[in-house]
Design a protein around this nucleic acid. Structure first.
Lengths: 188, 188
DNA sequence: CAATGCCCTTGACATTTATCAAGAAGATAA
DNA sequence: TTATCTTCTTGATAAATGTCAAGGGCATTG
């Protein structure tokens, strides 16, 4: 997945500025199972997933809760930790071998002076993250578990052969057993 | 509720700049039951709730789903509509007589040139909205209905004597009957 | 190859939640 | 005040989901 194309889509910038930005993204590889962001660390980079799959999760008293699964073409970080320099609320682990392009905070912070449009771009990016979550909340209060599964399956078919279903179940807010039964019922 | 105090807390600005911003907020009154943002309109203002309670909801094929209830001290708008000039995904209705202080988009857009810090402030505001939703998603996948109720009750006691419980039930992702039974069980 | 570990599925059963219906309590309007 | 409307509660029942336990498939490792 080409980062320039993706940056263009996400940030909606002219090609010249995309090229200027993209050179600050540093390529990194992450092995399957590795922790990309550990417990209580600060997120010091915003990473574009060139290949591979990650999960974002937290530990509660009783169990691990996977909040989000990100694959190729998505960005991954703990946004509030990255933006506000707080200890992260989430851990991030690679579920497959992965390659990411990381924008480190030190470079990110210089964009404001480098690019006149940067604050608009940044605002748009954060606002889009907001909209995604807004839809997700609405799904939880308006759809059944089965409907949530069907929608997720349509939008993330690529995950289903590569990530343990228990993580997908958690993202959908149900137990692995329930997800398994829904799948056998609807024939996915 | 004083808007300058609130702006200071939300935007974390020095008093001088707060005063400069706050003069652009226009006082408006809204009667109980009135629609503050109608179906498919564009949100042309970001409003601070000085008094009163609003609900943000959408109509599905089968029923009305209340996504959010906002009271005194909160801001209310359809953020994605306001920021991106899209038709709103939500309707907003006053549940009580209310008084708001509205920042219209035409003024909002001038802040960027008026205040050097504005893009930082704006980014911080949107990011905080994001964090609230992030926590809310986590609550849906990690807490039981009863736990979600108890938490909501702790944080929003003021709503419970003023807004129909059916709306609160919807925000919590359950039916009014279930909310009623949880309340009688835990003795709220 | 055998052994191990991880993950998924399935069954039996318990719990939670939704649905439908009826009625009571409270607000609002005539 | 009386009538009407809305909202909340409660009961009976059905449906959905969780829990616990067992077993099987599949990959990895020795």
């Amino acid at each position: 997945m080409d980062i320039e194309i993706q940056l263009q889509q996400v940030f909606d910038l002219p090609p010249g500025q995309v090229r200027e930005i993209s050179q600050y993204f540093v390529e990194e590889t992450v092995g399957k199972g590795e922790f990309f962001l550990g417990n209580g660390q600060r997120a010091d980079r915003l990473s574009f997933i060139a290949s591979g799959i990650f999960r974002v999760f937290a530990q509660t008293e009783s169990r691990e809760v996977t909040q989000w699964i990100g694959g190729e073409g998505y960005f991954i970080t703990d946004l509030s930790s990255f933006l506000f320099d707080q200890p992260s609320r989430w851990q991030i682990q690679a579920l497959t071998d992965a390659k990411v392009l990381s924008l480190y905070k030190s470079d990110y912070q210089r964009f404001e002076s480098l690019l006149p449009q940067w604050n608009v771009v940044e605002k748009r990016f954060i606002a889009k993250c907001f909209m995604v979550l807004e839809s997700r909340v609405f799904d939880f209060i308006s759809l059944s578990a089965e409907e949530r599964y069907l929608q997720y399956f349509e939008q993330h078919k690529a995950f289903f052969n590569q990530v343990p279903l228990q993580f997908i179940a958690s993202v959908l807010g149900m137990t692995p057993e329930t997800l398994s039964r829904i799948r056998s019922k609807v024939g996915g």
